[in-house]
Amino acid sequence: MEALKAELKNKIITTLNLEDIAVEDIADNDPLFGDGLGLDSIDALELIVILDKDYGIKLVDPKEGKSIFQSIETMAAYISANRTK
């Protein structure tokens, strides 16, 4: 799980072009949106693409995203339980 969390942090920084943020700056329970990393709605769509492309998870109900993308912790837990690749 720890490796997956580190992988997710790297993917988010690279894919979302978070130029001024390092892996060490993201705590596992930091909110990804709002006051945390400050991601926006387009970033949320990119996170859905990451789930599909890298972990074979198709998010059918976008409402699920709100709980899945709360933090690195929640993302990693969801991916671990649902990944197909």
């Binding site: 894919t15 990119e46 599909d52 492309k53």
Partner: peptide
């Protein structure tokens, strides 16, 4: 086929 929303905008 993984269109990028961030590029599309």
């Amino acid at each position: 086929y993984f269109p990028s929303p961030a590029v599309f905008v």
